[in-house]
Design a protein around this nucleic acid. Structure first.
Lengths: 229, 229
DNA sequence: TCAAAAGTGTTCTTATTACACCCATGG
DNA sequence: CCATGGGTGTAATAAGAACACTTTTGA
């Protein structure tokens, strides 16, 4: 094999850390590998990038094939390219994370075939490849981004209570927040619209529902506003 | 060509945004391309990644071949992989930025051959490939990181004045800082050691020289401290 | 009437901003 | 003795942290 050829004996893939939130802890969607290497182990969903496919497109494809979801929040984190990260050859992978509303997720045939399921982000075994490291870095990136941009809402249903929102931030940031201070701050941003609806079916005083006003946020950004929690 | 083969008709490269600071504006080290594509245009230094080479190693190699420098601060930003970003084929590039002390830079034969020179980061023409976009993203990353970690010192000589440090932050962050407030804050971190030396050869009251105490920073981090400017 | 979570303000503390003059040196 | 940047403190303002009780609903 010539030296030039050897440059092309490599491949690139995308791996997608799909985050979800069910009201309790932050979750990640993993698949159980059905073939070697690492057969039977849990892994991040991923695939090789097609020759005429952009990286983001590949990550969206992986996501849609597994969950049926399109148009989901997706962000690249970085490339992982250690020489021996893949036992079968040189594979550089580009890591993305995405934020989905768990209730929208309906397992697809592809995901059944691979046995996909949500895992608590803080109770994970050893994953295939270098996926623990990838997951770790994506989580760090999420913790940073969630404070700098209103992306947390991507993990919640369109209508949510302030307590749900607070619990979301608490589980991502791994910290406890003061209820009154949190509400004061988030409401003072004027990005939440209070609805004329309340929770139903709860055995206590029902909470007001809110929705995030995407259009107003866009206008604020144009005027130089920057989200900061 | 079979479909499997086509996955391997791709290559990956690294591109390195090398930042420097000469007391005035923030600079970036560019090379003038000597061969097509984009012959004659200025570009980021970069190269294909060798089959048995880690991404960071490749970025360090590019840097050393150009500048003769080793062991400099280097950080990955992200991958750029638009299908048509390289006119000759599918090349995914991993962008890094590095921080060097401009006085240490001695052009190497390799850099002469390529005509390397420092360019003001805010007065750039159109660069080769998607390098303007890469540079832009690396600069954004630097702006963020320089406030979260004591990496600014990598751009200064070991001994520096507080005014030099302030000017460095002002040029990276593109903002003006109040002299007294800046000094109060940076000195209150207890990360700077005041030396028994002063500036020489200046036509005014000479400033005290300081150096960054890397070891003390390491200890503080162990105790949970996190740098925040 | 009880349990469970919703909702609501004020005080204290800390961090950030704004601001102007004298000092030391070389030419 | 003049020009140049070095060096210094205080007051005002804003942001963040701490904290406890009443309300509404379903069971």
């Amino acid at each position: 094999m010539s030296e030039v050829d050897s440059f092309f004996k490599s491949a690139f893939s995308v791996d997608n850390v799909i985050f979800g939130f069910d009201g309790g802890d932050l979750k990640v969607l993993l698949i159980q590998r059905g073939a070697p290497p690492f057969k039977g182990m849990w892994a991040l969903p991923g695939d090789l990038v097609y020759p005429n496919e952009n990286l983001e497109t590949a990550a969206e494809r992986v996501l849609e094939q597994l969950t049926g979801l399109k148009g989901v929040y997706l962000e690249q984190v970085r490339a992982f390219g250690a020489v021996n990260r893949h036992p079968l050859g040189r594979v550089i992978t580009i890591a993305f994370y995405s934020l989905v509303k768990t209730k929208d997720f309906v397992p697809t045939p592809a995901s059944f075939a691979q046995r996909a399921s949500w895992h608590n982000i803080h109770h994970l075994d050893k994953l295939a490849f270098d996926h623990n490291e990838i997951l770790h870095d994506c989580l760090i990136q999420l913790k940073y981004r969630v404070r700098m941009a209103p992306i947390g809402f991507e993990l919640l249903p369109p209508k949510f209570t302030l307590t749900e929102l607070q619990q979301l931030y608490e589980s991502i940031l791994e910290t406890e927040l003061d209820k009154r201070n949190f509400r004061k701050k988030i409401l003072s941003m004027n990005l939440l619209e209070e609805l004329d609806e309340t929770q139903e079916g709860v055995a206590h005083r029902p909470a007001k529902l809110y929705q995030f006003d995407q259009e107003r946020y866009r206008q604020f950004v144009e005027q130089g506003y920057s989200f900061d929690l």
